[in-house]
Design a binder for these strands. Structure first.
Lengths: 196, 196
DNA sequence: TACTTTACATACATACTGTATGTATGTTAA
DNA sequence: TTAACATACATACAGTATGTATGTAAAGTA
């Protein structure tokens, strides 16, 4: 079976991202060796550096795929309701449920900001889950569901709260129970901003 | 002037921690070379490895001093009021104001969890700012100031919200303005849990 | 078909952490 | 007081990981 160069490139990149995602999740960025990644992906260091330029470049590509995946799930879940409040709750819950997964958690929340820097991390996040959150809040405020408050500030507070919630949940023995506790606490938290 | 071994050890350790704190803040953990740290501290690699065992060991010592410093400021600020609600607000504000400082932010919030792992990071945090927060919330709930909600979950939500707030504030051009916005948003956020 | 470009392999240079060994100074106990 | 010992630290070296320079074979192009 013959393959075009573009297809071939695409394939090796995807394979490398897959393998790296697993490695970064298991051992963390610092302890994952490029040598091991390429070996397991069935290519050589040449392919990796040709396609991603550096270890950071590879990580950024992995992070992007993680964020995109989560973003899609959040949006899909939120779209299940017509009510703005319900959408917000559903979206938040979907984010926490997705991010807590082993193949996402560490890359997204622990190594992400440290490896590529918080500013870059935030820029990338902005194009995925955070943008949806901000737009949702903006809309809710414009339609009078939310008290007057800085949407930027609120967005970051909620985002930060959820990120930490994810890490906490993943450390507790009973994920289901802690997820329910977070869910209840998040609902009350949002009540503070509610007007109708 | 002669020095006892204990005094000498104390002095070199403190000097190394000081220098490392600056380096880790400026360049981040990964880009700070041990060689440069010991050079600037006026000792050799021998001293560093003798006292801290590894690069991670040094970082952990630096992080501990950061956390302790912030913890003390939070406690001192909260103690300025008798009212439990006021104490909570003052403490939160003190945490954000302290953590946002350049010599604290990156070590505490960005590199911390990644370098030593989130579990260890949380254990260390527990002995400083987070413990105070939890105890405060516990007390408030017992005295009927707070709705029934999992204190563990709430503690982490608040802690995470504040951590992200710190990072956001430090990126905005006008720190003072964004701190006020966060302050207002935090107050509303807490309102959701208030009963009296 | 001649050539160019590209995707990748391989060998090597560089840099950094950590260790093994040596030394001088402080401490302690007979 | 001094001899035996512990400790704080210096130095040289080894191991490992990232990144680069160069080579090659196959696909694309004129």
């Amino acid at each position: 079976m013959k393959m075009s160069k573009a297809e071939q490139k695409q394939q090796t990149m995807q394979k490398l991202i897959e393998v790296a995602r697993e490695m970064f999740s298991r051992q963390g960025y610092a302890d994952a060796a490029m040598e091991d990644i390429v070996k397991q992906a069935g290519v050589t260091r040449g392919a990796l550096y040709h396609n991603f330029g550096s270890k950071e470049g590879l990580f950024e590509a992995v992070l992007a795929s993680v964020q995109q995946e989560i973003g899609e799930r959040v949006e899909a879940e939120a779209a299940k309701s017509e009510d703005l409040w319900q959408q917000l709750i559903l979206g938040c819950l979907a984010f926490v449920s997705s991010a807590v997964e082993h193949r996402n958690k560490r890359i997204l929340l622990i190594d992400g900001p440290s490896v590529i820097g918080w500013e870059t991390w935030r820029r990338m996040d902005e194009e995925n889950s955070m943008r949806h959150l901000r737009e949702q809040l903006q809309m809710m405020q414009e339609q009078g569901y939310l008290r007057p408050v800085s949407i930027d500030a609120l967005t970051h507070l909620l985002s930060g709260a959820m990120n930490e919630a994810v890490l906490w949940i993943s450390e507790t023995p009973d994920h289901e129970k802690s997820l329910e506790e977070i869910s209840a606490a998040m609902t009350l938290l949002l009540e503070g901003y509610r007007t109708k």
